[in-house]
């Protein structure tokens, strides 16, 4: 068992902790300011707010695509600003991300896309082939495993992106508008998948505008407005 997992069981360290965090793109004014919150291990949160409030930007700080301009971001109890560059890949493998713009690899089949994180983690295909097929069937892509992403509908692409994000059983799942392109029954199905993962120990953070989804899930909500947390901060 990883030491982090022990801590996780002890409930000692938050999985994500922001303290006085700000971020900016280049020399532009701050997109996020004074962000402070924490996600306990095994928690399930939504983050919402108007378009342009900075939800995707906040997620970028967590999945290590951007660095804060001020304040500290901690993942699994470690301040990311002092994590050595060579340890970053291992940290990223513990984070599953569903990007708002999906970002599938267009030259790879549905099956290859879904299996990508396992492959990057150097797992043996023989050990995961069955799991990947099962997961794809679960998100309703069981008949499209050969297909290329370009031939999928918007909702199908989104479900593939979800499969890829969860296939490696990440410690944190970040989902940026994961139900933006699917109908309500499918949204509820996806929500059930997230709840299931969460039950298995994955910490979940979902950025969404979907009030219905949030109402249905009844989970704590972080609210961002104009780059500041107006609800759910610490």
């Amino acid at each position: 068992m990883r030491p982090e997992a022990l801590l996780l069981e002890a409930g000692a360290e938050p999985v994500v902790r922001f303290d006085g965090v700000a971020m900016r793109y280049g020399r532009a004014p701050e997109t996020l300011s004074d962000i402070a919150f924490s996600l306990a291990p095994g928690s399930f949160h939504f983050i919402t707010g108007p378009s342009g409030a900075g939800k995707s930007s906040l997620l970028k700080l967590i999945y290590l695509a951007h660095r804060p301009s001020r304040g500290s971001v901690e993942l699994f109890g470690r301040d990311v600003s002092v994590v050595a560059e060579r340890d970053m890949p291992m940290l990223r493998r513990r984070i599953g991300v569903i990007f708002q713009d999906v970002r599938l690899l267009e030259h790879l089949s549905v099956f290859d896309n879904a299996a990508l994180p396992l492959r990057i983690a150097n797992r043996k295909p023989a050990a995961y082939r069955g799991d990947v097929a099962e997961l794809l069937a679960w998100v309703g892509l069981g008949e499209r495993m050969h297909a290329l992403p370009a031939t999928l509908s918007g909702g199908e692409k989104q479900r593939l992106a979800i499969a890829r994000a969860v296939v490696g059983r990440p410690d944190i799942l970040l989902a940026d508008e994961p139900t933006g392109n699917v109908d309500h029954p499918m949204a509820l199905r996806i929500l059930r998948l997230f709840v299931e993962l969460n039950r298995l120990g994955t910490t979940v953070l979902i950025a969404t505008h979907d009030e219905e989804l949030m109402a249905h899930a009844r989970r704590p909500v972080l609210r961002l407005e104009g780059g500041r947390l107006t609800e759910g901060g610490s």
């Binding site: 999945y63 290590l64 695509a65 560059e85 291992m90 940290l91 990223r92 493998r93 990508l116 990057i120």
Partner: peptide, 9 residues
């Protein structure tokens, strides 16, 4: 995508 999925540089 490879990078954010944790592939080594």
């Amino acid at each position: 995508v490879l990078h954010l999925s944790g592939a080594r540089p």
